[in-house]
Amino acid sequence: MKPEIDVAELKEIISHSPQKPSSLIAVLQDIQRKFHYLPPEAIKETSSALGVPLSQVYSVATFYSAFSLEPRGKHTCRICMGTACHIKGAPMALEQAEDQLGIKAGQTTPDLRFTLEVVNCVGACAMAPVVIIDEKYYGNVRVDKMKRYLDGVRDED
């Protein structure tokens, strides 16, 4: 399922940055933040507005993991699978999250509310296992807490 993209809104976002090639990443970040992914229209609009070849915009968009060309959920749930988190039970937290959301790691729920990701280390090993939902870090995660965290985010909507 691909969400509808309002091209006027897209142009509005692009117009906030100086219209030159060096704005490329900033513009892509703004678009990613707004739509939670980079729609094909965004790649094309950005290319023509900033005067950067389409192929280069595509290169940058596919290089950074912060950008996604596939639609992503409104919320991102990242589960740290670094060494410390791994041995302190992160795989179980992941399993719980997968059950809760009905998707596998790397996937997005069909209603585009959640994207579930596995990350390698977030540098917060002291509070392992760590789960990050949107910008918020949760430490010492236990399986039973996982459901509460995700429900909490759902209730906020």
């Binding site: 094909p40 070849p53 192929s55 280069q56 595509y58 290169s59 596919t62």
Partner: peptide, 18 residues
């Protein structure tokens, strides 16, 4: 500038835009 490198790491490839 018709083609470029897409992706990174193991999945890096030469590709056309999109």
């Amino acid at each position: 500038n018709a083609i470029s490198v897409a992706g990174r790491g193991y999945g890096r490839e030469i590709a056309t835009p999109l």
